[in-house]
Design a protein around this nucleic acid. Sequence first.
DNA 1: GTACGTTCACTTGGCAACAAGATACATTGA
DNA 2: TCAATGTATCTTGTTGCCAAGTGAACGTAC
Lengths: 233, 233
Amino acid sequence: MAEKNFLVDHLISEIKSGTYQLDKKLPSEHILADQFNVPRMVVRKAYEQLQDLGFIYSKQGKGSYVQESKKQIPLILSGDVSFTEKMKEFQFSFQTSTIYCEEISYDQKIFQSLGVGSDDKVFKIGRLRLMDDFPIALHTSFVAKTAFPEIENDGPDITSMFQYYRQRGYVEFGSSSSTLKVIFPTLFERDILQCSSLIPLLQVESLCRDKRSNQVLEHTVIIYRSDCFTYVI
Amino acid sequence: MAEKNFLVDHLISEIKSGTYQLDKKLPSEHILADQFNVPRMVVRKAYEQLQDLGFIYSKQGKGSYVQESKKQIPLILSGDVSFTEKMKEFQFSFQTSTIYCEEISYDQKIFQSLGVGSDDKVFKIGRLRLMDDFPIALHTSFVAKTAFPEIENDGPDITSMFQYYRQRGYVEFGSSSSTLKVIFPTLFERDILQCSSLIPLLQVESLCRDKRSNQVLEHTVIIYRSDCFTYVI
DNA sequence: GTACGTTCACTTGGCAACAAGATACATTGA
DNA sequence: TCAATGTATCTTGTTGCCAAGTGAACGTAC
């Protein structure tokens, strides 16, 4: 195991330092095994982990190649500016697509923060953030039907939640303190975000309040691919 | 590969839901392979990844057991309160030990932020943060000798940098905006932080300024074990 | 000369057999 | 009786072989 980890470390530093060019072949498992005087299985395991980590990809019969690394763009982690607004300054094309809008079953934490009872209906609206047509974040808004009665119908067509709230009379928004966690993607998240299993995700959870009434408008959970951003707080 | 990932997902959710008790044996590789109708190698790879992720440990001849999970304590991520002060409110015992204090070779980014030239000397002071004698963070301070001429001698004995600066006439500190990155531990960091290779680390980089003169006192890089904290920003 | 098929060498992928550690239990001997 | 030792059967760890995909080199028919 130690041997595998050493190899992984070594190869990552070589990839990062640019020893192997983009989409260039890495040494074959056999060659590398001979070089480091370890069984091929060790090299195999190292290569497999590098695949899970998104550094390389392997093709049977051909070889292993370094994966194009994602541009790390700086992202301001503060909840009172909308994602769309955060992204305006960059030269990339940004896009949002709503992927679901559905009622959720009772969840104590969410229902409590929204200030509704267990009998009330709460909808979960999932919006995928794309940069140059590449998924980089999944934005989930939990909204109470008591606050927005038409949310079930409106949900699928909303592109900006902030704009939706503004159209309904809420003018100024405030964000509670956010909690931040590092998680690994579930099967669903891997699929949605098109990432391998060992790409860490940054999960930011916060509440969006109407500043005038202090009413909680939504409970927000955003998960960002950690390989696409450097965060600024 | 998909089969392995499915198994990993499945086992993690079972471990988290408490199906297997602490230090209790998981099904043997052979049994699980039969249950899921996959070759044992697939189960093996899943178990190995769970080891790297810190969920389980395996012993040859005995079996695989679930690892005790770390308590997640909330941590305020803001640079102008010292770590020691952040931790005072908790019931755990906190401790800091200086593990190195050495001159570094020229690094453009660091030298520039400290406002010194390439001929100047900059020291790197590494301090390990322990909670109940368990390492949870590595705090690295980059300090210019021009600003603190005695840093080479004083460094190893400093427990609180803020206190050190106060003793030298700096009373109020300000922190620049921090940048935040998710990284995996290097061999050295794994050793120091006693963590397995796939524990993501949260790297927070910032500058500490004297509020009066706006002089940069130190360039700070802190890496936290992501499995020990929920961060609050 | 060219087009096509065959072979061969090299790649990653997969797996079954074996090695080695642990433990419970039977066997042996004083 | 009791302790030491062998043995069977679990467990995880390791290894080596073969399958399968790829592409270049080569040969052959036209």
